[in-house]
């Protein structure tokens, strides 16, 4: 079980999305990724669903907190 935390504030699109997908691809086995975002990464959501991953994206301070869970 691995946990990854990313702070994507200050990055221009598509860097936040690429960082998250790279981190998920490098994740070994089940785990959870959380990322602080300035904006909702809307183009990321279909990518996560295509990969069969569960996620939430909720307001958090001035931005959003994205949580992605990977079962295996």
């Amino acid at each position: 079980m691995s946990d990854i935390h990313l702070d994507n504030r200050g990055l221009h699109p598509p860097e936040p999305m690429i960082r998250i997908l790279e981190a998920l691809d490098n994740m070994q086995g089940p785990g959870k990724l959380t990322a602080i975002m300035e904006r909702q990464p809307r183009f990321l959501f279909p990518e996560l669903e295509t990969r069969g991953l569960r996620y939430t994206c909720e307001p958090n301070g001035d931005g959003y907190l994205l949580t992605v869970e990977r079962d295996a």
Partner: peptide, 10 residues
């Protein structure tokens, strides 16, 4: 779940 309230889509 995706929260509502974001204004970057129409």
């Amino acid at each position: 779940m995706i929260s509502s309230g974001d204004n970057v889509s129409d």
